[in-house]
């Protein structure tokens, strides 16, 4: 069914864990519509929200193309954790933000969101190297959120990468030298 290319390439299906839920639930005949509005509940405190925003931009900064904030990655992360992910998915993110906050106040005497970009990079590096409690787990998951949010955003798809709405042809030996950007899928 549909294109099995992802499965054939050995890429693990995005969702695989939840099977065979009981059928005994009250059967509402309403087919669920995907909620695309604001987060149905606040995932972050104001301070955490500012930190998520700052760290997103450190993971994918503005360079010759816009960065994570311009691509509204922080809003994507909060929406996803509020409504599109499993409830437990927010736990390692919140724990990691807490660990970074604690370390920032210890080392720099400021809230992590108010630290300098260099200090924030140092905090992210500690997390990446698992030198904070739950650091590596947080880093992997947070980076995944930022990358997913960025490369599925309009900026990520059309400015950082190139989107061909209707390629019209297939060339299986297209010169790489002619490519200035990665093609979005």
């Amino acid at each position: 069914m549909i294109d099995r290319r992802d499965a054939l390439a050995g890429i693990v299906a995005m969702f695989g864990a939840t099977l065979f839920a009981p059928i005994a639930r009250a059967a509402s005949v309403q087919v669920a519509v995907i909620d695309t509005g604001p987060p149905s509940s606040a995932v972050f405190t104001a301070g955490q929200r500012a930190l998520v925003s700052a760290l997103s931009e450190r993971v994918i900064p503005t360079t010759d193309t816009p960065g994570a904030i311009a691509a509204e990655v922080p809003q994507f992360i909060e929406k996803l954790l509020a409504d599109w992910a499993r409830p437990e998915d927010k736990e390692p993110i919140l724990a990691g933000l807490g660990a970074i906050e604690t370390r920032s106040r210890r080392d720099y005497k400021v809230a992590a969101a108010d630290a300098t970009p260099e200090q924030q990079d140092a905090l992210l590096t500690l997390a990446m190297n698992d030198q904070l409690p739950g650091g590596a787990d947080f880093f992997d998951k947070f980076r995944q959120l930022v990358i997913t949010g960025y490369y599925t955003s309009e900026i990520g798809i059309t400015q950082e990468r190139e989107y061909l709405p209707v390629p019209g042809k297939y060339d299986g030996a297209y010169p790489y030298a002619r490519v200035t950007k990665v093609f979005s899928s």
Partner: peptide, 18 residues
């Protein structure tokens, strides 16, 4: 393109589960 599709074309986990 994916940014015009709800939830960036990733099926929300709670909806998959339910």
């Amino acid at each position: 393109p994916p940014y015009e599709i709800p939830a960036r074309n990733m099926m929300p986990r709670p909806l998959v589960k339910s």
